[in-house]
Design a binder for these strands. Sequence first.
RNA 1: GGGCGGUUAGCUCAGCUGGGAGAGCACCUGCCUUACACGCAGGGGGUCGCAGGUUCGAGCCCUGCACCGCCCACCA
Length: 800
Amino acid sequence: MLPRYEPRGVEERWQETWEAEGLYNADPDPSRTPYVDAHPPPNVTGELHTGHALQLAIGDTVIRMKRMQGFNTLFQPGYDHAGISTQNVVENVLLAEGTSRQELGREAFEERVWAWLHEYGGKILVQFRRMGASLDYRRTRFTMDDEYVRAVMHFFVHLYRRGWIYRANRIINWCPHHETSLSDLELEHHDVDDTLSTIRYPLADGDGYIAIATVRPATIPADVAVAVHPDDDRYTHLIGREVIVPWVERRVPVIADERVEREFGTGALKITPGHDPTDFAIGRDHGLPEPSCIGPDGRVTAEGLEGLTQKEAEERILDWVKERGQLEGRKHYRHSVAVCERCKTRIEPRISLQWWCAMDEIKQPALQALRERKIVFHPESQHRFAIDSLENAPDWNISRQIWWGHQIPVWTCPDGHLTVEEETPPACAECGSTELTRETDVLDTWFSSALWPFATLGWPEETDDLAYFYPGHLQTTAREIIRLWENRMIFSGLELLGEIPFSDIVIHTTVLARDGRRMSKSLKTGIDPLELIEQYGTDATRYGLMKNSLTQDVRFSDSALEEGSKLSNKLWNAARLIVTACGGAAPAERPSSLEERWILARLSQVQREVERLLGEFDFAHTMDELYHLTFDDFCDWYLEAIKVRLYDGDAGARATATAALERLLKLLHPVMPHVTEEIWSYLPGRRTRLIVAPWPEAGDESEAGALERVQDLAQMFRRSGIVPALEGEERRIFNAVVKPERAKVTGNADAERERLRNEIARAEAMLANDRYVQNAPAEVVAAEREKLERYLRELDAIGD
RNA sequence: GGGCGGUUAGCUCAGCUGGGAGAGCACCUGCCUUACACGCAGGGGGUCGCAGGUUCGAGCCCUGCACCGCCCACCA
């Protein structure tokens, strides 16, 4: 064993061994209790980032503890086809080749995607292995697997037959680059510098004008009205009259609607139902037409402006308006604008025929389960948010006009009858026509994600896996995914299987870049976990990531990983001492001395604490406990105290030391699996791998404080140089650890006496305060008295 | 514009139901003590964002303010 622990090589070796020996495998076994974490499937085109790494560390730590505790653990791996995202990647490849998906056609394009995926996709699972994640890789699922596709089709047909899926023409978010609809949740909002133009619309009867403010003059050709607030005195006399829309010179009415903000702009709003969500809502309520002047590609279609970009059309229209003296002014205006989260193209609100899933009924059981806390969020504060967002969830736009994904299983005959089946039907269900054409839209990626916890287990087939492993337990995810995914898994699970898919949701925090900004590829602020692993090792990276973050988003800091690195090295060297000194001493807890009873009690105490903390998914404090147990208690006190006895060949000390080390390794294994397994392999009499070794029984902890007095006096000795009056075992331990004959004292006795006298004076003053003694709880006062007595005794021990 | 979280040592963060301000890193001092110098021992350093209030006692509770971050949101 080398003096310095070197994770490189060791970690890969154990990762391969564990997997090869089948120790990650989970199979139904009625004699054991399952524990399941269906790990969030990353995008098939993705690469490991810090969020994944943290998520894996958290999930794997819990899974490893549960596995040692005897649960039949299933840590489910897989990846997601990520519709738009993947299509985007492959389209970029095509672009570089000078072609496009339109040129290839749909079938050839899909083949290209598959080909690309076979070559480059799914590599992220290789990176998952480097995090030491004990996923059952045999069970890797992909949301485009044949079985999974069948599950998605089944889900769609199920919802359709329930009457919850319908088709409707509504205004939706349209990405002109991908030429598809997007749900509200797939947008980002960016602040942009824009120009607000004030334009006069002349009254049709030639008597003055009404001025409106707009940031999008290019949509003027599709205006169908001008709206004002019903109580706006400036305009009430104009309601019901008509104005003339510039450029197209069409007469449209002035209407009244409360949704118009009187304070904004001129207080008059041009109504363009075809290109603005608010206008669309107002237009529907007033029964207005819904013309369009912008095509799916974002270019203008209005007469006289065909094929122009919106920018060009805007200039033409503004010139037109200016020539006629109708341009009242233009001013700088900064506001937030929706963009496609994938390509950052500005969203074009557009009326389009889409498939929807009605939410009213399907969400009710989920809301009830959440309100009854059958699912617990960690931290608790996210619980309210989950309920609120589900309560307010609008109908779900589930169709996308892209090519990569699950094609909607709806067929139409020439008469327009719809046939909805899981597999291609032979003929129209209504008229028997065999001339069927399939719906070209695909489903929203999250539609298939919603099935992850049970489609991975074979649903809709009634498999043994499903019966045994469903419902699961743990779910780890980021905050922004709650509405997109968590809520949808919950209502789908309840609807299809009648049970919640998991019991605990850990919302981990966002790790920010070193400078406090968000990690992002485009800003180049990202931190590559593989580089961290290269530098610190997997164990240290796991430790460092979990040490960070609890309630608030936290900046990435290397010092936490360095700490992890030190911990693994410290553990390694402690083991080296015990292994070399004890040789093949069989581990046995037979404490014959105070420090041995103490360390065993401390191990039990910390174990209970770790069990409690991990039960609450409090990872940062778990790291803290383990670090101090290892450094302060195990190494600096216990090992220092028994070192000499180990060298002297004391059989009891050797057996106990080996046993204590075993317990320490077990406590650390869930967090630092590799270094602990490596050390474990050096210990005598090994029967099983540590990964599947039984979690220890926490024992008696009554002597966990037994060394406190010696520790206090040792510190005092180092400050004052005065050897305290200690006897028996306490004297022996003091001499073994502190070595008075060799220790150089840095402080002095006078300073120590001074410190104690000050403490005594403070305590006496507190106890002399009547209001304190009368009002403070009795135990607080009693504790103060004890402290005073202790100070007096210590002062006595070093001589006044 | 809503909702949530934050503001504690030079840096990154802990401080559980109010009871003598903590950790790791960095810094200073002493030690190459035969497990580990990624070590051991000791130390310096903080009006706990600001202003009020409740209390015998406030980092923690209440009110107001100021910054910072995240999520959400149809003022064109």
